[in-house]
Amino acid sequence: MIRQKWTRAWCCVLLCVISTSLLPVNPVFGAVQPAVVEDGPARVTADAAVLMDVATGDVLFGKQENKRRPPASTTKIMTAILGFELGRPDEVVTVSQKAAAVGESTIHLDPGEKITLYELITGALVRSGNDACVAIAEDISGTEEQFVKLMNRKALALGAQNTHFENTNGLPLKDHYSTAYDLALMARHGLQIPQFASITRQRETKIHFLDPYVLMDLRNTNKLLWNYPYADGVKTGTTTAAGKCLVASATKEGRQLLAVVLNAPDRFGDAKKLLEWGFEKTETVRLVNPREAIAEFPSTYKPVPVFSDDSIDVSIPKAKRMNLQTRVVWEKPANFSVRAGERVGRLEVWLGDQKYYSVPLHSERKGMLKGS
C-alpha cells in the first residue's frame, strides 16, 4: 500500500510541476524579480516582509524578502497545497500512532480515528494542527519523509529557490527554512485552489470525525480576519526561533494583495499596514489585451502584425506610472519572410531604468505569411 501511494504521489507531483505554468503570471525571464519599491509603509516591525499582487505576481514592497528564516507553521501552506493536488478530499484517513503523537499545536488526533483528508487539511490551515499535517503526509506518500521530498520539489517548481523543508508542519529544525518572497509564491499558488482559498478565509468552522463520530469547533489563528474587513486568508506561524509570522491576503474592489511578515512583533499590524498601503499607493495597469496586435514586423513582402499570447498587466506604485514604458525588440532580421506563429521578437516592459518583463512576440498563428 505504501508503495502504491508513493507511486501515485510521484506521478501526481510531476503533473503539478507541469500545471504550475498555467498560473496567471506575468512571463518574467531571468532572475527572481526584485521589489520595485524602495520606500513603503513606515515602521514595519518584521525582520523580513514582502507585498505581492496576487493576479500579476508583482512584488510591490520588500524588506529582506529573500532572507532565509524559519517559517514556523506557514510551512502548512505547502502541505495543504499538495494535500489538495495529490489527494482526494473525500478520502478517509486512519490516524497513525506517529501522527497522533505529534505535539505543540494540534487538533488532538488519536490513533485509529478516521477522518477525511479535507477535514485534516482544514485542521491544518485553520487551527494549525501539527498532527493533521503528518496524517496528510502519511495518507498521500506513506511517510512524512517521502511527502517532504515532494514539498521541496513543488517549492522549486513554483520558483521558491530559497526554501527547504524538513517536515510538514514547521516545528523547528536546523535545515528547515524559507523566505518572505518564497512564502508569497506558495500562498499565491494556494489561492488559485478554490478549496484552499475557501478554508483560509473562514474565521470559525467545524470538522467532522467519522469514527468515532465527533464534531470539533475550530477558530482560525489568523486574527486579521476579525480586525481587517478585507482580509481573506492565509496562515499564521509562531515558534521561538521564527518569532511571530503571518501570510495574509486581502481583497478590495476586486484586487487581491498578499503580505508576508516574518519575525514580526506586531504581525497583524504589519500585515494590515502593508495591505492598506498597497491598495492606496499602488495599482494594476493593463498594457496589452489578449491577441491585440502590438507592432508590425518589417518582413520582405509586407508588415506582419505581431502579438503576445496573453494579456499583460503590471502592478506598480501609482506615483511611478509615468515612468512605465514598453519597447519592442526584434530578434529576427528585417526583410525576411515570417512563418505563421514564429517568434520574431519580444516586448520589454520598463519602469524607469529597471527592466520589468520580457514577453515573446509571435506572428499570426493561422495561415502562412511569405515574403517575395
Results as ranks from 00 to 15, higher is better:
A101N: 05
A31M: 09
G103Y: 11
G112C: 06
A99V: 00
V25L: 13
L125V: 05
P70H: 10
V54E: 03
D110L: 15
S96Y: 10
N26A: 11
Q64N: 13
T122M: 10
G83K: 05
R43K: 12
A99F: 05
G83W: 03
M78F: 14
G83Y: 06
A100Y: 13
L82Q: 02
Q33N: 05
L60K: 02
D90P: 00
V126H: 03
G83V: 08
I115G: 00
G87F: 06
T45H: 13
A42Q: 12
A49V: 13
V28E: 05
V36Q: 08
R69M: 15
P34C: 07
F29I: 06
L82F: 09
T94K: 15
H108T: 01
Y118K: 10
S73T: 08
L60W: 03
V95W: 04
H108Y: 15
L117E: 04
G87S: 01
D58H: 07
T79Q: 07
T94E: 08
V54S: 07
E113A: 03
I107E: 01
A72L: 12
T122Y: 08
I115H: 00
A48I: 14
M52K: 00
N26C: 10
L86I: 13
E65P: 06
I77D: 00
A42T: 11
V92D: 00
R88A: 14
V95N: 03
A80V: 13
T94Q: 11
P71T: 08
V44E: 02
L23F: 14
P71L: 12
T116A: 00
F29T: 03
L109K: 09
L51Q: 06
G123L: 12
I81M: 13
E38H: 10
G62W: 10
R127Q: 15
A124M: 10
K98G: 02
E113C: 02
R127M: 13
A49T: 11
Q64C: 11
P89I: 14
R88V: 13
L82G: 02
G87C: 02
M78Y: 14
P34Y: 09
